[in-house]
Design a protein around this nucleic acid. Sequence first.
DNA 1: AAGTTATATGCCTCATCGGATATATAACTG
DNA 2: CAGTTATATATCCGATGAGGCATATAACTT
Lengths: 111, 111
Amino acid sequence: MPESSPGAVRDPFQAIADPTRRAMLARLRGGALRAGDIAEGFALSQPALSKHLRILREAGLVRVAESGRERLYSLDPAGLRGVIDWAASFEAFWPARLEALGAHLRRKGDG
Amino acid sequence: MPESSPGAVRDPFQAIADPTRRAMLARLRGGALRAGDIAEGFALSQPALSKHLRILREAGLVRVAESGRERLYSLDPAGLRGVIDWAASFEAFWPARLEALGAHLRRKGDG
DNA sequence: AAGTTATATGCCTCATCGGATATATAACTG
DNA sequence: CAGTTATATATCCGATGAGGCATATAACTT
């Protein structure tokens, strides 16, 4: 079998826990970028950058396209989907829920 | 002034990085719960649970209502907003962007 | 009052994280 | 070819994270 291996798999939520990585993702919203350009101005060593990219990759949030000696990174819709959906699941939960809270408290009898 | 102090402030993204805490948040989607009930079945010590709750609190993702000796936790829409919006910001970014990368990338396919 | 229940803190330990430097690999350039 | 450029890996280190047990605090119970 060939090897477009996903390699290690990492929790996307852990991946976006780091502010630097979120900034990198934000940059990629503008379109694909060469690895080196992603952290431009971030005051980050090249190896550190590379490590962050690896984590984002393993989390499935970005993907790479090799082009000569450069790697073009871009957001990976598939991987982002999970995060987006998870967050969205909290979008419209509480209209009636606060009601429940009040009821619960009331039941406790402290009007 | 009294003290409904926000206390320490914590990165919400770091808060949701932990699977246990995400599970707890998920539970709270069903409405407010007593601290002890939130992790029911999680195989987690009480102190550990309490610590997770503290983190979620400091991240502004949940809030507490004291009721006697119990604390009723519920999701905090305000705090969740940030995460939701951040995630949503990646919802519709790539329609034309990948185009710039080249057809090269497209054949990668993303289900 | 003493006992029990609900929750939070303190402290310790172990694993993981993020960054740095040095080095490796691979692809261009002259 | 040697030299440079783009990116990745190896290794070390200090900081942080998550979990546990013991303990503190406060509120119910009897």
